[in-house]
Amino acid sequence: MHVLGTYGTILVLILMVVVFSAIQPDTFATVGNFRNILNDMAIGTIVAAGLTVPLVCGDFDLSIGYVASFSGILMVGLLSANQLPIPVAMLIVVGIGMLIGIVNGVIVSKIGVNAFIATLGTGTVVVGLNYAYSGGIPLQLTHSTDFTGLAIGRFLGIPHLAIIMVVVLGVLWVILNRTVQGQHIRAIGVSAESSRRAGVAVDRSRIVAFAIASTCAAIGGVLMASNLGSGQVTAGDGFMLTSFSAAFLGSAALREGQFHIVGTLIGVLTVAVGNNGLAMIGAPIFTQYLFAGCLLVLAVALGGIGRRYGRG
């Protein structure tokens, strides 16, 4: 059961690749399809990996999806209506994202509002800002139309999105596993009180964790806008649920119920491969939801079993 708990998700992933390749060798098991999968999952992975940081710290962030939507709209608005240069617009959008994260962190750590409620509140405010800015109407990209090249282009045959995803994952992995800040975030996730007594700046670390999640959500929103070539009012909202699914799915993998970056990547990858494969074999779309939902519950349940019986 221990093995099933910690390696179950990876087994499912490998099994799916083998089975889908056997059934559809000409469409599924191709470089092109692999590239598609990477491309499709990239933005979701960036948002989910960002969310993983406050989760490691023991905090939920429900605002990420709304931050992604708002960031996408704002990006297109700044390029089209304000005709700002692409890098300037990006800096502003990602900066605002980071700011929202800092606000989340301050409300949660300094004021002491439960993270679930606090981020539900700030997320809703962000939806309000989104509608105030866009009027609830999609924005078209009228200037800087080469902005779409950011998400759609390829470098040496590798989609830009996949490259950006790997860079973000790498940076987040280093932060969590190799920096003092990451060490503190992981310690707080185990026991905030012990960390405080050991001299860790608990509040500041939690704020940083929220800022990272929100920054990643904003980056996701910018890439989404580039990918769509327009600003859609609710395009990023769904990232909230998929990110939580991926992070929890990943928490069951390899490390017995701990959130970690590689786990989250495995989580996103498993769902992405499953959805892609199911589509390839012509399964109706509802099967994708059944698959993702059942996998999540099963993996976390088995992960719990691994946790309970795993300590030999």
């Binding site: 800040q181 960390s195 001299g199």
Partner: peptide
Amino acid sequence: FLGRELALGRGPALFRLI
């Protein structure tokens, strides 16, 4: 070393490598 990690670099904890 919790709270007193030996690290490379200066500045915020985010940029100091353990």
